[in-house]
């Protein structure tokens, strides 16, 4: 079961999925409010990762934090999940995918607002130049960023995107509180909902299975982990 809530210092390898919990419970359960990819190894000899410790991650906070010259992001680790023993090819694939994204970011317009990297529904978007069709940029939710890195980089589909359960606006606000001034429709939340949305906890449930390399069909209760 390579997915757990961190209760004591735990060793973790680069590319593991790190989850953060909210400050308060929702319906008596702890949602996972954010996920990212661990940017460096935390071996047992160096103490592993303790609950609530900030760790370096690749993430779509927003903004996208992809390491490289801009450095990684930082995320308080409450949950940890990984594909049991990723192959060298899978790890290399994720590294290449991240490098491609860094290049795409370098070639996209310089003055970007952090929220321009973000989408909730769908969890990833490709934006093209309307005249030429050339890809200009990509947008992700935090979960979409991790899911795409595994899918496109490592060739591992963690979740069946066609089988996501619907989530209501009220429930979503508990998981992803947004400032009042943000218009939800900018992130794809058009209308009153519910919407089939990829949630951070879905990825942890996907990795909690013995065969994490086959796509998981999240259940409605999987918003918490």
């Amino acid at each position: 079961m390579p997915a757990l809530r961190i209760s004591s210092p735990t060793p973790a390898a680069r590319w593991s999925v790190i989850g953060r919990e909210p400050r308060r419970l929702f319906e008596g359960r702890a949602a996972v409010v954010h996920v990212g990819l661990l940017a460096e190894d935390h071996p047992a000899e160096l103490g592993g990762i303790a609950a609530g410790t900030p760790v370096a991650v690749y993430e779509c906070a927003p903004p996208l934090r992809l390491g490289g010259e801009a450095g990684p992001g930082q995320l308080k680790a409450h949950a940890l999940a990984w594909v049991g023993d990723p192959t060298r090819e899978e790890a290399e694939g994720m590294e290449l995918w991240l490098e491609e994204l860094r290049r795409l970011r370098r070639d996209s317009p310089d003055l970007r607002e952090a929220w321009e990297d973000y989408t909730i529904h769908p969890s990833d978007l490709i934006e093209r130049d309307s005249a030429s069709g050339v890809i200009l940029t990509r947008r992700f939710s935090c979960a979409g960023f991790v899911e795409r890195c595994y899918a496109e980089g490592a060739g591992i589909r963690l979740v069946r995107a066609e089988a996501l359960p619907n989530i209501s606006r009220e429930s979503l606000q508990q998981i992803w509180p947004r400032p009042d001034e943000q218009d939800p429709s900018e992130f794809g939340l058009v209308g009153e909902g519910p919407w089939p949305i990829l949630l951070p906890a879905h990825l942890l449930h996907a990795l909690a299975r013995a065969d994490a390399r086959t796509p998981y069909e999240p259940r409605p209760e999987d918003w918490a982990f």
């Binding site: 090819e89 290399e92 694939g93 590294e95 290449l96 995918w97 491609e100 069709g133 496109e152 980089g153």
Partner: peptide
């Protein structure tokens, strides 16, 4: 012999292919 690199090339070539198809 690097499948990850082949996937990366395939992604780029697919973009060109789709552009040309259009």
């Amino acid at each position: 012999g690097r499948r990850a690199l082949e996937r990366s090339v395939a992604r780029l070539l697919t973009q060109v292919y789709e552009g040309w198809q259009r």
